[in-house]
Design a binder for these strands. Structure first.
Lengths: 126, 126
DNA sequence: GTGGATGCAAACTCTTTGCACCTTG
DNA sequence: CAAGGTGCAAAGAGTTTGCATCCAC
């Protein structure tokens, strides 16, 4: 049976208030502020569990560690800036991806990532 | 300056004839058939380099090791079946993703994955 | 008090790097 | 023969696991 522990609450809370997907290390840093001494292994254990429970969503980008965000937000996708590596949420989803699959295939889910330069880095590089 | 070596050719060739994206280990296994003794470090070095040259494309799926495929195929995306884990190429791309990004952002690239059940697994589960 | 949860450190896996030797041009 | 390339092994980075201890119930 599942216990309510300070660690679990600190991790859930840090994920809940995050404005963007967090890597395990980022999550550890944030949750540690509320609960010093928290271990990275505990973060991973809860990420695994929350994922199994469907309470969070993994955001996987090429060449980057996985990031996690709380489930239940409006459906959206992500943009990663190749210069600053920050990941931004995108408000819209074009939808209608079912028609891309061969006939007979069942599309249950999809992932879309955009990559490029964010407004800040685009300015800086000019 | 860049040399033409047996290793480089074996790796390029294995990628070129692959029918699906290959992980570094799969690529090593295939290229080793043409050139026994090939080392995994060399595979990684060439993957890095080919990627920099734009000669290949990384295919990253949540929870799976990165795979690589030769560039220059028609632009396409992938479908992964959650039952048999096979990855299929999709012929079309809806395109026009630039409008999804916030203004000021530069979209250079995008990735789209569909997930669900392929025709075979859908039949089998019925 | 009992069994799940935790922190630490070691183990693992995947990828990168240092270095001596080899190969291409 | 010079400079880049290679294989090996060691080093890194990220993640998982074993285990003694802790603590929620």
């Amino acid at each position: 049976m599942e216990r309510r522990t300070r660690q679990r609450e600190a991790i859930r809370q840090a994920l809940a208030v995050a404005d963007r997907p967090l890597s395990p290390q980022e999550l550890l840093a944030r949750a540690s502020r509320a609960l010093p001494g928290l271990g990275i292994a505990t973060v991973y254990r809860h990420l695994t569990r929350l994922d199994r429970e469907g309470a969070l969503r993994a955001v996987v980008l090429p060449g980057e560690p996985s990031r996690y965000e709380i489930a239940g937000k409006d459906h959206h996708h992500h943009f990663r800036c190749r210069a600053c590596t920050a990941v931004f949420e995108l408000p819209h989803c074009p939808g209608d991806f079912e028609r891309l699959a061969p006939s007979g295939f069942l599309v249950e889910n999809h992932e879309l990532f955009l990559m490029g330069l964010c407004a800040g880095c685009r300015d800086g590089q000019r």
